[in-house]
Structures are given as C-alpha cells and as structure tokens.
C-alpha cells in the first residue's frame, strides 16, 4: 500500500501542500472562495521547522494506532487492506482522546466542527493533493518500504 514520504532537503516550507490539502477537503474546492470565507477549510497537514529543515507533519496511519485504541466512541478503525486509519465522522463526539495520544502530534482538533483533522490520503483520488502541489517534489507517494 502507498504511503507519504518526504524528502526533507527539498522542502522549502512554502506550505503549498497545506493549501492543497485544505482546498481539497473544502466544500467549495475553489481557492478564492475558500480564503474569503469566515471559516475556511483547514489543512490536515502542517509544515514545521526544526534545526534547519522543514517537516510536513500529518497522520502516518500507524500499524498499531494509539488513536484507534483511545477512541471511546468507535469512530476510528484501522483498515488493514488500505493501510489506513478510518475516521467515521458520524460516530465522532469530539472528545479529543485521539489528539491526546497521537505520538506525532499529527491529529489536530477543529474546535468549530468538533472533529479532528487528520490525513485521509485523499481517499477517493489517485494520489493525495499534497503530492502534485509540491513545487520541488519533496512529497513522495510510493509503496511502503
């Protein structure tokens, strides 16, 4: 199954991946409509700077996901075939247990919607939006090593 990797040296920290992520997960799907909204769509990925490098941080879809164990509402399941943690929004109560236990700080709370923001690998598309959005090819979409 495919996973997101990052060639850190190539990452400029331009946040194009964040924009593409937010846009792809928005209702309007249009940048100018979205940025003028009161509640713009939020990215499920954040680029963080550390010791001279930029690191895009998002859900890694861990094989033994702590968030799935912690979910007290049955909203999270691990799909072995897809290699993904699936989030069922209709079951989520916004208790933030998943945020509390994520070892990568990769799940962020959206306080307004009371839903956690996490990467879904752009599930219905051939590849995640952040991949083609990256101007330097730092975001790599490939089979898991």
């Amino acid at each position: 199954m495919k996973q997101l990797y990052y060639e850190v040296k190539k990452c400029l920290g331009c946040k194009s991946c964040e924009f593409a992520c937010a846009l792809t997960h928005s209702l309007t799907g249009e940048l100018f409509k979205e940025i003028n909204k009161e509640d713009p769509s939020l990215p499920r990925k954040k680029v963080l700077f550390s010791k001279g490098n930029n690191y895009p941080v998002s859900c890694r879809h861990c094989r033994e996901p702590k968030c799935v164990d912690a979910c007290m509402a049955g909203a999270l399941t691990y799909d072995k075939e897809k290699g993904m943690v699936l989030h069922d929004e209709s079951s989520c109560v916004g208790c933030w247990m998943c945020v509390m236990v994520c070892p990568y700080g990769a799940i962020r709370p959206n306080i307004k919607t009371k839903l956690p923001l996490r990467c879904d690998k752009c599930k219905d598309k051939d590849e995640p939006a952040c991949v083609s959005a990256c101007p330097t090819g730092a975001v790599i979409w490939k089979e898991e090593a």
Binding site: Y5, Y6, V8, K46, L48, F49, S50, K51, V57, Y104
Partner: peptide, 20 residues
C-alpha cells in the same frame, strides 16, 4: 507555535523512516 514532533525526532527511541 512551531513546536512539534520534528523537534523531538532525534530524542525518541524510534527509527525515522518517513523523512528521507
């Protein structure tokens, strides 16, 4: 504001394979 996992990456007992 910018703190996160990348800042502790070198300190934790885990081989990092996502960032290449």
């Amino acid at each position: 504001e910018n703190f996160g996992y990348p800042e502790i990456m070198d300190l934790v007992n885990q081989k990092e394979n996502l960032y290449v």
